[in-house]
Each structure stands twice: as structure tokens, then as C-alpha cells.
Write a protein that binds this DNA or RNA. Structure first.
Length: 294
DNA sequence: AACCAGGTTATGC
DNA sequence: GCATAACATGGT
């Protein structure tokens, strides 16, 4: 099956692809010259898709499985944030002397989402306080052990583990994968809360951003940074700011001459210039962290 | 060879 | 309330 999705304005598939392929070994998708392959679950059945680009726009090919077209299109549009008009964000960027270059250098980059809230929370807990290379290794070990796998053309594609897959394991089971004892506990506890319905994307969707964050930070392992990260990457609440984020601070220091540890007030003053686009601003600032590496 | 990574909790004052 | 240690290991 072949699905075509027209490209929205201010969208660059290549920029999105760059993000998906930036120097890390992400087990949730595979990037090749043609595009990106990712395993989805549609109506409880595995569906492997390949997203590429041609003159007509985005081309989504279903390589394995079948299912209705709509949820596949919906996933792609949500994942690559295709349904958003980001022109207002670019207008704000242009007003910032130091950041205006992003509208051309990162033209069309979209905030790549993690639609599955459970995955987003687990991933942000895994990534706390450790370098991303190590974080991606931990995610891979967890996923390869507890996630569903599909083999296609000799390559393995994974779904992130479900809460039900993780709620009954013991923290000790994750220690050989080099999880810290605490991270193992947090992830298993959160799996239980998802499984019994205490936490879900639906619940948070019906709350204001501030209420949802308050709900999340009550959970062990989720602090202010994690709650904001999940709200931004999964629920796509664009007013979220990852306070306490070292990567954000480094980028602000390099790009804007900020202090190494800016206060919340300093951050709020800066982000006031990007009202309703705070999360996009954070995402574009993260993008700058790769500039010197390549 | 220290010191820092896309932080958070537990503990002590 | 606020400061500090512990976490587990890779990168620089």
C-alpha cells in the first residue's frame, strides 16, 4: 500500500530526517538513504512503514501488515508535526538577532514527537542525568528485551514495551542492563500506573498544561524537567519549557550568552519573546548543540 | 583523571 | 525550605 501526504509549508523532510538520524543509535526507527522505517501498532497488529519523499510530497509505504490508512497517516502527521503552521514561530525567530539564522539553517525542521506517552515518560526517565549515547543504549536493551519485534528483510524492528510488559518485572531484572536501581523502580511503577489507568494520555489531554504537570510530578521519578519534556514531546503542549535542562542551558549560553545556570526568571524573560512557541524554541536550541559536532 | 551528562529522590539541618 | 549525596557509566 502506498499513501501520499502533501507537504505543508515550512516543512523539510530532510531536516526531520536529520534529527531522526543525529549521531545516536535510536532503536525506535531506522534511517536509510531513502527515508525512515518504523514499526507501528495499528489495531493491535504490527505495521511496518517506510516514509520517503518525492516530487509529489511524502510517500508512506506499508512494507508489512495492513490496516486502515487513516491511523497511519495520522501517526505520520503527528510524529513529524505536519499539521502545524509554524510561520508565526519563524516570525518570532526573525525578531531575535542571534537566532534569526535558524529560519534558514534549520528551515522546515519540525518538533519530532513521541506520541506514546508511556514511551515518552520512560525515555525521559532513562535520559535523566546521563549522556545521550548511554541513554540510547539503555533504551535499546529495554526495548529488545521486552518490546515486540518484527523481522523484515533481515532487519529487526521494535515496538516500545507496553506497560503490561514492564509492570510485572522486578527492578533487579533491569540491573544487568545497567539501569540504576532507582530508574528501574520508577519505570516499573509507572508501568503499573498506566496499566491500572491512573495515568494515561487521555487523562492529561483533558487537563490544562499546569494541571497535567502537577499530576505528573506526583509520580516518583518524574520531576519538573521530565513532566515538561513529556508534555512537549507527547502531548505537544507548545508552551512547555524544560526547566533545569542542561542541554538547553548550554545552547542558550552559546547562542545568547546566557549564564551557565540561568534562573527561572531569566528563562521566563527570554521565553516571553516566544509565547506559545516555547517548546519549539527549546527544540531548535537543542538542534544547535549538534552544530559543532559535525 | 576529574568532571559533566537533555535530573530526581532521600536525607539531614 | 534549602543544600547535598547518591545514582551508573560513557564521553571529553
Amino acid at each position: 500500500m502506498l499513501i501520499r501526504i502533501p507537504l505543508p509549508p515550512y516543512f523539510s523532510f530532510q531536516e526531520c530526517l536529520w534529527f531522526l538520524d543525529r549521531n545516536f543509535d535510536d532503536c525506535m526507527h531506522k534511517v536509510s538513504k531513502q527515508g525512515v522505517r518504523k514499526l507501528l501498532e495499528i489495531e493491535n497488529e504490527p505495521v511496518l512503514i517506510e516514509i520517503s519523499e518525492n516530487e509529489a510530497g511524502l510517500k508512506v509505504e506499508v512494507l508489512f501488515g495492513k490496516g486502515p490508512e487513516e491511523p497511519i497517516v495520522q501517526f505520520v502527521e503527528e510524529w513529524l508535526d505536519m499539521s502545524r503552521n509554524i510561520e508565526p514561530f519563524y516570525e518570532l525567530l526573525k525578531k531575535d538577532k542571534e537566532l534569526a539564522y535558524m529560519t534558514t539553517d534549520f528551515y522546515g525542521l519540525r518538533m519530532i514527537a513521541i506520541p506514546d506517552l508511556f514511551e515518552a515518560l520512560c525515555w525521559s526517565i532513562i535520559g535523566q542525568q546521563i549522556n545521550l549515547t548511554f541513554a540510547y543504549k539503555l533504551k535499546r536493551r529495554l526495548t529488545e528485551t521486552y518490546g515486540k519485534m518484527l523481522t523484515y528483510e533481515g532487519a529487526e524492528y521494535y515496538l516500545f514495551p507496553k506497560p503490561e510488559d514492564l509492570m510485572r518485572i522486578a527492578a533487579e531484572d533491569l540491573l544487568p542492563m545497567q539501569f540504576s536501581g532507582k530508574k528501574a523502580e520508577y519505570i516499573i511503577e509507572i508501568a503499573g500506573k498506566f496499566a491500572n489507568g491512573q495515568v494515561s494520555k487521555e487523562i492529561l489531554q483533558n487537563l490544562s498544561t499546569q494541571e497535567a504537570i502537577a499530576h505528573l510530578v506526583k509520580i516518583r521519578g518524574i520531576g519538573e524537567w521530565t513532566a515538561n519534556y513529556a508534555m512537549m514531546k507527547s502531548l505537544k503542549r507548545l508552551e512547555c519549557i524544560t526547566y533545569g535542562d542542561v542541554g538547553l542551558y548550554n545552547a542558550l549560553a552559546q547562542q545568547k550568552g546566557f549564564p551557565k545556570r540561568p534562573s527561572k526568571e531569566e528563562l521566563n524573560i527570554f521565553f516571553a519573546g516566544f509565547k506559545n512557541w516555547e517548546a519549539y524554541t527549546v527544540f531548535y536550541l537543542w538542534r544547535t548543540l549538534a552544530l559543532k559536532k559535525q
